[in-house]
């Protein structure tokens, strides 16, 4: 067989260059579109809300007067909810993923469970809200409390944490296990000294990202009745609550245009919280992930 030497003529080359330019243009426009929309949104929120953003806004309760309205109850509500959600979802989520990856036999049943976990991560949050309303609020008689809200939120983000943790555990090189077994380590010793340390950055990154989803979450908490006016500091987990995104939603639907600006100011605060949380996730990933 003779090798046929193909010499592309100039026409062909030009056509390929045109295609390339065309593709580049489309991708550039796609990126540009996203950035412009984001910029427009940010500019609008900031120009509208910045005037209401001061210390009083953070330290006041909600009010019928836009100039007095503040997000104190909403921020505290968010903090309370997170103080339940973080331990519950981390402990349950990490345990589940360790069990599934390290202990559970690989059969059809566990495969079925894993498939469902991945599906759960895509279930609309309002469905979790209904679940929380039925189980925590009504059946377990927790009422429309911080406890019910925090547990509902834990359920909501649990699948994401489990999937992220499983991924982190699975990416640990097999050699590390073999080395540990060779030293005579038991399963628990391996989990404690090999698996968890190596998987921590992955687990924490996943956890923080899903928690920041939780911070911005509205629908599920609306279902369990978090759209409230509260002018006191919750003192126990059985008190009522409201959270930042719901407070913003409530203001945005008011007739007075000033409240739209107050809602924008609330959005700025929410954005800042989310940026801080996401930066933390990136920081943790970068700091701990280059171990081998």
């Amino acid at each position: 067989m003779k090798n046929k030497v193909v010499t592309p003529d100039e026409k062909q080359i030009n056509r390929r260059i045109t295609k390339n330019t065309f593709a580049k243009g489309i991708f550039f426009l796609g990126t540009l579109f996203g950035i412009i929309v984001l910029a427009a949104l940010l500019i609008r929120i900031f120009t509208q809300g910045i005037g209401y953003l001061d210390f009083d806004f953070l330290s006041n309760f909600a009010s019928r007067r836009p100039e007095d309205a503040g997000i104190r109850a909403a921020i505290l509500g968010t903090v309370w909810i997170m103080s339940i959600t973080i331990p519950v979802s981390l402990i349950l989520g990490v345990s589940t993923s360790i069990y599934l990856e390290e202990y559970a036999p690989k059969n059809k049943f566990t495969h079925f469970i894993e498939l469902n976990l991945a599906n759960l991560a895509g279930v609309p949050s309002v469905v979790f809200g209904l679940l929380g309303l039925t189980i925590f609020v009504r059946l377990l008689e927790m009422g429309r409390s911080i406890l019910a809200g925090g547990l509902t939120m834990s359920l909501l983000i649990l699948p994401v944490i489990v999937v992220a943790s499983k991924e982190a555990i699975r990416s640990i090189p097999q050699e590390q296990y073999e080395a540990a077994y060779a030293m005579g380590a038991t399963k628990w010793q391996i989990i404690r000294t090999v698996v968890l340390p190596a998987a921590t950055p992955g687990i924490l990154t996943g956890a923080i990202l899903s928690l920041s989803r939780g911070v911005g979450e509205t629908a599920s908490l609306l279902m369990i009745g978090a759209m409230t006016f509260i002018a006191y500091i919750p003192a126990s987990v059985l008190d009522g609550f409201t959270v930042l995104p719901i407070q913003i939603f409530s203001w945005a639907s008011r007739p007075q245009t000033e409240f739209q600006a107050v809602a924008a100011a609330g959005s700025i605060v929410l954005l800042v919280i989310l940026i801080v949380m996401n930066s933390l996730a990136i920081f943790i990933r970068n700091k701990y992930s280059k171990r081998y």
Binding site: V79, I86, P87, T193, L196, P197, T200, R291
Partner: peptide, 16 residues
């Protein structure tokens, strides 16, 4: 490294 995990996890929730 185990302690790292516990530290970060615990301090996150404890802080809140």
């Amino acid at each position: 490294r185990m302690t790292n995990f516990v530290k970060i996890g615990a301090s996150l929730s404890a802080a809140l």
